[in-house]
Write a protein that binds this DNA or RNA. Structure first.
Lengths: 343, 343
DNA sequence: TTTGATATTGAAAGCGCTTACAATTAGGTT
DNA sequence: AACCTAATTGTAAGCGCTTTCAATATCAAA
């Protein structure tokens, strides 16, 4: 049996390969009878066009790359990625694109590979997890004309690049406002070392305080790495300042915060109320369950694909800024609802 | 600036594009001076060959597909995938292959897409998570001559297809033997509905009993879905049979088993010892920590890539069976070590 | 009926690479 | 010196598709 190609289908349908190509690509001006005849052969044979040939001829690979230059070593327990990847994948399925996954452990390797990825024409566009995007990667990205979308607002060039971000300012604002409405006044904040998300979350915190006419107390601010242990250590230092509430910029750190408060013999939320950000699965099972700002990396990933493909279509100089709304999930840790034991 | 292509590099180095191609591909018979001259231009320009053109000409896409037809809906919390994907990714990086990720929620969609993936020549080989591989996917796989490797032993055709599996029989055997050595005699087994892994783990259980001259008691066997809740429900039914130990075929179910035992007012390991299989992160943090059979999907994924690429090289009819050893991780739940509270 | 626009198709030129194949050269061997 | 083998390079033919371009067919308006 001869290999199935466009011209083979053409031969069987008594048309040229060009016509078959047009049928496949939904070109309008085809006589219905011919379209049907060709389609019938395609269906019967189960013919699928060779993606590589297609890519070469049309200069469009139909492959979307997801580029993650800083995967946590060894364990893949990163809840963000675990949610992001299926989101991106599903959106690719819907748009009939193929997802290529590029995971690297170090920025150095990421950078080396990024160069290769960009200039080997393997992807038609790239989704890039943020942080990493800034100084090191930007120049490379700009040199090439490969469309890309960042996950999260970059610290620089943000008006020249496209990104899909959360409303970190608004989310933090709502979490802190909630604490204020519950009567808390000495609200501490714990953030990880400043990336733009932490920056924006701090901004939201400050805005809420300002709106309530509260002068932010520098002694109520802690900044560290973004592990559970980081949250624990920072909170230990903050407890002597006698905060009556804490806003943690991430759930992971908040778990450490809870531990520090418990160890100090204090109660959450009675002595210190806690709200945080992310709504990871662990937030719901924490003790007490965390009031936190919900975001969905899955949704963010899907939107990134859509945005990217739109950019691909409209030209690489198109710039899109998507800011997703967040939602405050109220659980026990802020004191607004009754603490109940889990059943 | 003209687009960088083989012939452009050739022009600059005063050689033909064929020679440049040979330099890039490490063809032996090239005069060293020419090789150097060409390499210099390549390095200076940062030229990268167009992957698509390469794929078309050489009929080798250099893309490895990871095909997962049954991703858990919505949450990507599957610890197996979370470990498998980075393993596969890293191995692809090492072998300079690109990883294409195909995640689908239902087998129907998986099957539809598999057809497309196979006949569109997008991947040079496929890694397929098992279970799913059996009845529905096998015929499609056989029709096409795309090399593939299954994760886990398939229930049928296992001598005609390549797979990378764990020594489930041996692992289960060691876990049950451990219980026997600790003096347990009424050892229950809890498995999920039979796939080959569960089958093999059951076989290991039976082998250990047989070796000890113990006739397996059918009342000590439970089979269900493979959730925590499944383990819980099965164990509730088994407790009246008064087992002095349980071998659970998965950590997830074992957590449910622990809960059922505690609810019955019994103690682990004093009244009932528990061992299980997988060594998920949750096994170490369970209460008490689970003695379990360690496997590393990360390693399995990496080996799958290596095996696949070997098959690609040696021809699609090559068959490789890789069986990875397992290791019994002894923690508190079997009673062999002192239970300690976590610090 | 003539005419200009539009619909419909096929021929053919690539896309950027690999790879026979042929041509040339170099290096020994009688 | 004639001759054979192996090394070295270029020429050119595709890989399977898209996409101009040109040719023809069709149709409504004049």
């Amino acid at each position: 049996m001869p290999k199935l190609t466009l011209s083979e289908i053409g031969r069987r349908a008594h048309v040229s390969s060009a016509t078959v190509s047009r049928v496949i690509n939904g070109y309008p001006h085809i006589r219905p009878e011919i379209r049907e005849r060709v389609q019938k052969i395609i269906d019967e044979t189960g013919y699928q066009p060779n993606q590589m040939a297609r890519a070469l001829a049309s200069n469009n690979t139909n492959i979307v790359g997801l580029f993650v230059p800083n995967v946590v070593e060894f364990i893949f327990a990163d809840p963000y990625l675990s949610s992001l990847i299926p989101g991106v994948s599903q959106a690719c399925n819907v748009r009939e694109s193929t997802l290529a996954l590029f995971l690297y452990h170090t920025k150095e390797e990421g950078q080396r590979q990024l160069r290769r990825i960009l200039s080997s024409n393997i992807v038609e566009g790239l989704i890039i997890t943020a942080d990493c995007s800034d100084t090191e990667f930007m120049p490379l990205l700009f040199e090439n004309d490969v469309p890309f979308v960042l996950m999260g607002r970059p610290s620089k060039f943000s008006d020249q690049v496209s990104f899909v971000d959360y409303d970190n300012v608004g989310g933090a604002y709502s979490a802190v406002k909630h604490l204020l409405q519950l009567g808390r006044r000495r609200i501490a904040i714990i953030t990880n070392t400043l990336n733009t998300a932490a920056e924006d979350r701090t901004a939201g915190y400050l805005r809420a305080l300002e709106e309530w006419g509260i002068r932010p107390d520098p002694d109520l601010r802690g900044e560290g790495d973004f592990t559970e242990r980081g949250g624990y250590l920072l909170m230990k230092q903050l407890i002597p300042q006698q905060p009556d509430a804490v806003f943690s910029a991430s759930d992971t750190m908040a778990i450490g915060v809870l531990r520090a408060i418990h160890e100090a013999g204090l109660s959450v939320p009675d002595d210190i109320a806690v709200t945080s950000f992310d709504d990871l699965p662990s937030a719901a099972t924490a003790n007490p369950p965390l009031t936190t700002v919900h975001q969905s990396p899955q949704r963010q990933g899907a939107l990134a694909v859509d945005t990217l493909l739109e950019i691909v279509k409209h030209g690489a100089d198109t710039v899109r800024h998507i800011v997703l709304p967040t939602e405050l999930i109220i659980r026990a840790s802020c004191g607004a609802v009754q603490t109940r034991s889990l059943t």
